[in-house]
Nucleic acid binder design. Sequence first.
RNA 1: GUGGCUGUAGCUCAGUUGGUUAGAGCUCCUGAUUGUGGUUCAGGAGGUCGUGGGUUCAAGUCCCAUCAGCCACCCCA
Length: 422
Amino acid sequence: MSQKIQPPKGTRDFYPADMAIQNHIFGAWRRVCARFGFQEYEGPSFEHLEMYTGKSGDEIVGQLYNFTDKGGRDIALRPEMTPTLARLANQLGRNLRKPARWFSLPRLWRYEKQQRGRLREFFQLNMDILGSDNVSADAELIAAACRICEELGLKSGDVVARISSRRLISTLLDELGCTDKPPVYLALDRREKLPREDFVKGLGEAGLTEDGIRRLDALFDAKSLAEVTDLVSSDDAKAALAELETLFQLLAAHGVADWCKFDPTVVRGLAYYTGVVYELFDAGRSLRAIAGGGRYDDLLSKMGGERMPAVGFGMGDVVIAELLKDKGLLPTGIPGPDLWLVSVDGDEIRQAAVAAKLRAAGKEVGFAFGGGKLGKQMQAAQENGAKRAVFVGSDRVAADQVEVKDLATGEQTVSTVEALCL
RNA sequence: GUGGCUGUAGCUCAGUUGGUUAGAGCUCCUGAUUGUGGUUCAGGAGGUCGUGGGUUCAAGUCCCAUCAGCCACCCCA
């Protein structure tokens, strides 16, 4: 047993039953994307290493699967899709029809220690809208993320989209005289984890006064947008707040208000977010984030293109599958053919001919090789997930007839191959 | 990268204070059922106890290392 080669750490094997689950999730992703008018794109599964180091610095290399190819090029398996998307968009330049609504289902790789909901190889739905400043685009994506959860059988009480705004925090920090924002974002992101004094100290070093820290606390403790109104005074901050209010009106119009909640503590560690940010979690918070995203208006220009407002989110396949499993919402068994031929007289020539005729008519047909006892053939029909058994070569019916048994109900009827082709 | 827990048949697990041929359920195979599956009954196959080393008269049971899994931290694109 130990001699057998195991799959590499953090990877998964997909047996038919696993693929059925995978296809269940992918199917929901594709259906909702289609309903929202998104178009699918793809890119290479590996890119130049600098595409990732340029954005996040060299320490990112520790989390990449990278290598030098035979031509001496530094290559990395893609750990995320957004840089590839940005590259594609920048290549198109002005030929990109805006706003573009694009989605992709990339397989991604990250060299990380695996845990529940986090593997080294996984899939992630990416939905992005390029070229729209409008908050309607933000709403569109949040609504899509909620609809995907719904499509998979989850209820609004199972999942909550926690929504905040980088812009709101940023403009408030301007008001408070903050000179160095990135460290503040980091501190805010860990507000619940850091000891209080470290939190206060960190903010103080970033130029915040005691009064400023008090106002930040008030923002982070706010349970609704209304509570924030009194906390902001600058025009910029008021505009950011108004944008959030519009967002929630739009989300209500989309019919996903029950799924969404204003939560100022959502900051997201990623530096490139500039506006609305959100994360979807299971209500019990027992798992990692199901999805996360936001507005990143400056990213494409930073990657060498022209300014291009953009919004997007990513939803991994691992966490959502865990949640569906916990909720008992995963399909069981393997998908089988509609029909399973059972040869009564052992005439495999005739069986093959019947199968060919049915298949030509578009029917799904399987059968056991080499015939065998009817009990065995019936068992094979069941094990292969067939819905109906078709007895071919029965002497109980006319030569051109077959007996058809519904495996779920046990009901058996007489028919003909021609009738089954319809 | 740091810390903790775990690793026994294909799967889920039980194995007393270290002591004769390592157990159960499920799965699988065969038969009851030579024209019909899912139920039931009977029988059978399948582990040297993750791997390597050490302690001991004796180790699945103790110690070390290593690999793998789980959990937390870190990180989270």
